[in-house]
């Protein structure tokens, strides 16, 4: 290293417009590369260091805090139009470390690592003593609610049979005794009204996803399920540049099925979100 040049980083204000630009690139990267859970939005920039990079450019080492929004990652709504999940709904935050190369005015993510965690039960109950807390997605009541909701949705659906992609969140409500769930679905090559064995249905080559919210009320006369699903417009996904290292916690690992036969019929194009 030539003397005097040094390999020191420069410190930048966390609220500097350049830092914020890098942070927004990082959040955009998170939302484009997650395939389960919800979109996140920037909450706070914790730290930033800017390293010189030879032969040219700079590397931003940045730590950011994010908050979960109410938009599922499969929802095409731009994150700026998504509401932040409120404390009373048992909010989830993300802690992320990024390295972003800035060269010729362009940004390239070279490293990303995020951990997400829900707010503590104590914090939620402090602001809202009666609010239901997040429940494990494999809880018996949750599984039963999702199954009942998906069955009800498909029974009312004149188009494709939709299969479960993932359960995104669930809450056990004490009074009245009920279970609230949110889950993602995907269209298959089966017709909903004609399905006899759902295991034989395949996802469409041109994926069509939906997002459902459902409540199962446990009544003395029997369970009553209320489900609302939004089917998203299909759109071709452009391949995203991948970093050298990309680590995600098990909680945000891929849940979308891998390869599918390419000769399946294409999904019908839906103009705008379809609420069923």
């Amino acid at each position: 290293v030539p003397p005097g040049l040094g390999l020191a980083y420069r410190e930048l204000d966390c609220d500097d417009p350049e830092t914020e630009q890098v942070a927004m690139e990082a959040v955009d990267y998170i939302n484009k590369n997650r395939n389960r859970g919800y979109k996140h939005t920037l909450n706070q920039i914790d730290k930033v260091k800017v390293w010189p990079r030879r032969p040219m450019g700079e590397v931003f080492e940045i730590e950011i805090d994010t908050l979960e929004t109410t938009c599922h990652v499969l929802d095409p709504t731009p994150v700026v139009n998504c509401s932040v999940r409120q404390l009373t709904e048992h909010a989830v935050e993300g802690d992320c470390d990024f390295r972003v190369l800035k060269q010729d005015g362009q940004f390239f993510v070279s490293f990303a690592k995020c951990d997400s965690s829900p707010d503590s039960a104590e914090d939620v109950l402090k602001v809202c003593p009666d609010c239901p807390l997040l429940a494990p997605i494999n809880a018996t009541r949750v599984v039963r609610t999702v199954e009942a909701a998906l069955t009800a949705f498909n029974a009312d659906n004149n188009g494709s049979y939709f299969q479960l992609v993932e359960v995104s969140r669930a809450q056990l409500v004490p009074l009245p005794p009920s279970t609230y769930v949110e889950f993602a679905v995907a269209a298959t090559d089966c017709v909903a009204k004609e399905v006899t064995d759902p295991a034989k249905c395949n996802l469409l080559a041109e994926k069509q996803y939906g997002f459902c919210k459902a409540t199962l009320n446990e009544k003395a006369t029997g369970d009553a399920v209320d489900v609302t699903c939004t089917v998203f417009q299909t759109e071709p996904k452009l391949p995203q540049p991948q970093p050298d290292t990309y680590t995600l916690t098990p909680g945000v690992a891929s849940a979308v099925p891998a390869t599918l036969p390419a000769n399946l019929p294409a999904a019908a194009m839906v103009v705008g979100p379809l609420v069923v």
Partner: peptide
């Protein structure tokens, strides 16, 4: 801070450069 009249007091930044502002709420 008590200083002599002709000695400049150490200036401290009014705003800490990091962490930055909270946009929504802290959990």
């Amino acid at each position: 801070t008590v200083v002599q009249p002709d000695v400049a007091a150490a200036t401290r930044p009014l705003v800490r450069p990091c962490p930055g502002r909270i946009r929504h709420f802290k959990i």
